[in-house]
Design a protein around this nucleic acid. Structure first.
Length: 921
RNA sequence: AGGAGCGUAGCUCAGUUGGUUAGAGCGCCGCCUCGACAAGGCGGAGGUCCUCGGUUCAAAUCCGAGCGUUCCUACCA
């Protein structure tokens, strides 16, 4: 058998699975479905995806093996803004402006890009082992999904739940489109607070000007009022006065409004209704003029004095400040930290901007969506994310769904010359629906819908809606949605709302919220930080130079390259070795705790690669000892060791099952890991060796043990398959069909079932005793520095009948594993030789000291043990001497404590006695 | 400002309904090529479970306050 080498097995196994159609739902079991959160079609797989999809694949493989009719629906998202941005950049690299190209040509380019790069993410998902149902793959812009989108839009419009309106929206001047509240990211930044003097039209009581403070001087060109708090005594005399807006020389009123915070700045605030959300509200309240001073790219328009027209907003800011200063109107400038809203995709500050947009009236949709979570029809895991959800949903604002872009679902609305709006699937339908004359000129709305509008329909649109398909009938609602917490508001909440509205049922029953994958320092992985890892580089490995090149290419800030290179060379001096998919996946399960941050550390991957290797070698050992021998047949006598491991395996199956039911992937991984490494490898395989090697073992006994070896291995492989799909398949194929089902793939075998009859208390207690005897002598060897080359005499003293029976039963096994020269029971009348000792219950295991044992070492070993036990004894005593404890604690707890104390007392007696005899030496 | 989470070994984290000798991985120290595995084996060191107070016979676990930290939402002229 070859060495464990993931790259040799993984890829061809996946191709085999896929070509055999194993990923398709099959059978007549209970339906189980998960819809993939559609990745950006032109994107690549990042760690967050790899993490999420690994978790889902384990769930899917688990349910499939359990016999469910399991569908993992594949699909991709057109990712409107992100994709349009990439295509635009590509065109610009060739000196082409999208505007020169025009809408149709641009879209052709975008589709071309989709076709060339769309395969990347699929290839990556395959490398991850994701058992997705590829045959029904969907795309948010494909014909079927587009039909669903139009249908939803039209129905909502006809119901009055979608409307068009002129509103202040978040505007991205770089992308020249509106974006939703969620697509705005606010970060604290350092800036300035400028205090300006606005001259009063008529001096009042000798006061000639008021001071207003602003962080955005350029917007003053659109001011239409100055506001103060109605109770502010300092300014009471200015109410109903006017100021002359500098630079514009416009007379604007001083108004009062309770929103004004008298404590901030001068307590007097300039009002720019067209360029600030609060000012807009106030402008509406006070019927102020709304002067929009920006073009779509946030350069100043013709509403401002000529010298500022055409200036960029930041340039205008500088000029306004200079000009006011030279007019003597700059009172002072303070440093000021504030949160600057930036476009998620473009990174530039977002501008509140007045424009015509489409909105979803969201409250009526939100109410039922809140209710289903309150009533438990949808359950979040962990549950506390429901708080986030409720908080968002209860405060939810109408959703701006129009984007001034080309790549996306074009809004199915037409206008006549009077600006009347007509909404239907097509222009023909518009004419018939609204009974319009054939020659009435109509023009279609230029905008497209927010990407999340189509994603909101994902669970049912992928299954064929609005057609009433069989798939929809069987697989909807889906069972669980696995996603990051950052996407609850963007997507999860909107899916719930839209699905309730159009399907009359929930989109999924559970939302499993994963943590956010960060680097080993807890930093978010990002291109600009240069700390990102490509999952494929962990699977396949990468040289240091390639990794550095990858991390430093196409940086937004090229000056960071040097730091990123240094950091990378320090962290990965040898690059990244080939770890394989199984190791990467197992790492994901192991770190999938309930924590909201998930630190990814390559040391963990290495550890789990080693785990795969361990499993590989263990299987190798099992095969070597069984395949060419009789390992099954009528007469099989498994021994207690065999019964013990079956019992342990059975417990592990239960633990894994429980972990999967509660979405604790970390605990599932831990149970598998500990069983394989600690019980199977460290103990069972070792405990079998004496039996297999002993010439006195009967054929039936040999068969029993060999059969158990193979069958435990085979069951373990099925147990581990959802987490380690490749290595388990590779090994399972080598298990003879005398042991396993004759099926073609482990993927479609039954998941192991916990069976009560396999629990064997007697064998478990026996082996626990055996382990203690072995561990005790190992401890003596370790501390006394007695090498395993040297056989040791072992004596037993003060054992009870059970100890004696057990020693007789396991004598050969113990001799073999302890490397004992001899075993001997000592009678109470015997002179006890000076020895190193270890207690197993009341029984002393003694290794005589002659020539082997260092007196001082044994004394300090004893001292340590005595101190430990003494502490335990004191603790137990204080409990038992407490009458309240004895009176109030459950009887079992009290009894347990009493037993413990009795044991400790005898143990201490023996240790003390032993110590004094060693000391007397 | 409001809300939420977290604080356990040097590091990263488990620890179910309160009763465990408080665990794991990595790291650290010592020994070992013994026929599955050095990507390994065996042994070992290492903890004021953030602090204070409360509830309880009993608190890492429940409650309150504080400190530290992270995140979300809103606002910041």
């Amino acid at each position: 058998m070859k060495k464990y080498s993931p790259q040799e097995i993984e890829q061809h196994l996946y191709e085999n699975w896929e070509s055999n159609g194993y990923f398709a739902p099959s059978g007549n079991g209970k339906p189980f479905s998960i819809m993939i959160p559609p990745p950006n079609v032109t994107g690549t797989l990042h760690m967050g995806h790899a993490f999420q999809h690994s978790l889902v694949d384990a769930l899917i493989r688990f349910r499939r093996m359990k016999g469910d009719r399991t569908l993992w629906q594949m699909g991709t998202d057109h990712a409107g803004i992100a994709t349009q941005l990439i295509v635009t950049e590509q065109l610009q690299a060739h000196g082409i402006k999208p505007a020169d190209l025009g809408r149709e040509k641009f879209l052709e380019k975008a589709w071309e890009w989709k076709h060339t790069s769309g395969g990347t993410i699929s290839r990556q998902l395959r490398r991850l082992g994701a058992s997705l149902h590829w045959e029904t793959e969907r795309f948010t812009l494909d014909e079927g999904l587009s039909r669903a989108v139009l249908e939803v839009f039209i129905r909502l419009y006809d119901e009055g739940l979608i409307y068009r309106g002129k509103r202040l929206v978040n505007w991205d001047p770089e992308l020249k489109t509106s974006i939703s509240d969620l697509e705005v990211e606010s970060e604290e930044e350092k800036g300035y607070l400028w205090h300006f003097r606005y001259p009063l039209a008529e001096p009042v009581n000798g006061q000639e000007y008021v001071i207003v403070a602003t962080t955005r001087p350029e917007t003053m060109l659109g001011d239409t009022a100055v506001a103060i708090h109605p109770d502010d005594e300092r300014y009471r005399h200015l109410v109903n006065q006017e100021v002359i807006l500098p630079l514009c020389e416009r007379r604007i009123p001083v108004i009062t409004d309770p929103w004004v915070d008298s404590e901030f700045g001068s307590g007097c605030v300039k009002i720019t209704p067209a360029h600030d959300f609060n000012d807009y509200d106030m402008g509406t309240r006070h019927d102020l003029p709304i002067i929009n001073i920006f073009h779509v790219d946030a350069t100043l328009n013709e509403k401002v004095p000529e010298q500022y027209q055409g200036l960029d907003r930041f340039e205008a800011r500088k000029r306004v400040v200079e000009d006011l200063e030279s007019l003597g109107l700059l009172e002072k400038v303070e440093e000021h930290t504030m949160t600057v809203p930036r476009g998620e995709k473009s990174g530039v500050p977002v501008e509140p901007y007045l424009s015509d947009q489409w909105f979803v009236k969201i409250k009526p949709l939100a109410e039922p969506a809140i209710k289903v979570v309150e009533e438990g029809d949808i359950e979040f895991i962990p549950k506390n994310y429901e708080n986030n959800y409720f908080a968002w949903m209860r405060e939810i604002q109408d959703w701006c769904i129009s984007r001034q872009q080309w790549w996306g679902h074009r809004i199915p609305a037409w206008y006549d010359n009077e600006g009347n709006i007509y909404v239907a699937h097509s222009e023909e339908e518009v004419r018939s629906k609204y009974a319009l004359a054939d020659d009435l000129p109509l023009s279609r709305d230029e905008d497209v819908l927010d990407t999340w509008f189509s994603s909101a329909l994902w669970t049912f649109s992928t299954l064929g809606w609005p057609a009433q398909t069989e798939e929809l009938e069987i697989y909807h609602p889906s069972d669980v949605m696995v996603t990051g917490h950052d996407i609850i508001t963007f997507w999860v909440s909107r899916m719930i709302m839209m699905t309730l509205k159009f399907m009359g049922e929930v989109p999924f029953r559970k939302v499993y919220v994963t943590g956010l994958v960060t680097d080993s320092e807890g930093q978010k992985m990002s291109k600009s930080r240069g700390n990102g890892l490509d999952p494929l580089d962990i699977i396949d490995g990468i040289t240091l130079d390639d990794l550095v090149a990858k991390r430093t290419e196409n940086l937004m800030q090229p000056r960071m390259a040097k730091r990123i290179e240094q950091m990378t060379r320090k962290e990965f001096p040898d690059g990244i070795p080939t770890y394989g998919t199984d190791a990467l996946r197992f790492t994901f399960y192991a770190i999938a705790t309930r924590s909201r941050k998930v630190r990814f550390d390559l040391n963990r991957v290495e550890g789990y690669r080693n785990f795969c290797n361990k499993l590989w070698n263990a299987a190798n050992y099992v095969f070597v000892n069984t395949l060419d021998h009789n390992h099954s047949g009528d007469a099989m006598e498994p021994g207690p060791v065999d019964r013990w491991i079956l019992s342990e395996l059975n417990n592990t199956i239960g633990a894994v099952e429980y972990a999967m039911d509660t979405y604790r992937f970390d605990l599932a991984a831990k149970a598998v890991y500990e069983f394989v490494w600690d019980e199977l490898c460290d103990w069972y395989l070792e405990l079998c060796k004496p039996r297999l090697a002993d010439p006195n073992t009967t054929e039936a006994q040999l068969r029993g043990t060999r059969h158990t070896l193979l069958s435990v291995l085979e069951t373990t492989l099925r147990l581990a398959h959802p987490y380690l799909p490749f290595i388990t398949e590779e090994l399972w194929q080598q298990v003879p069909t005398t042991i396993r089902n004759s099926g073609e793939t482990i993927m479609l075998q039954g998941f192991p079932e916990a069976r009560d009859e396999l629990v064997d208390e007697e064998a478990t207690a026996d082996i626990a005793w055996v382990k203690q005897v072995i561990t005790g002598t190992r401890n003596i060897r370790g501390e006394m520095n007695i090498s395993y080359g040297q056989a040791i005499p072992v004596k037993f003293y003060n054992g009870n009948e059970q100890d004696k029976a057990r020693l007789a039963k396991y004598e050969r096994l113990l001799e073999f594993l302890i490397k004992a020269e001899s075993f001997e029971w000592l009678d109470p009348s015997d002179t006890i030789p000076l020895s190193a000792t270890h207690l197993v219950g009341d029984m002393q295991v003694l290794v005589p000291m002659s020539g082997l044992i260092d007196k001082e070492a044994e004394l300090s070993r004893l001292e340590k043990e005595i101190t430990r036990k003494q502490k335990d004894k004191e603790r137990a005593e204080s409990k038992i001497n407490n009458p309240d404890f004895v009176a109030k604690a459950p009887h079992a707890v009290v009894q347990k404590e009493k037993d413990k104390l009795t044991d400790l007392v005898t143990a201490l007696d023996q240790l003390e006695e032993h110590k004094s005899r060693v000391a007397a030496l």
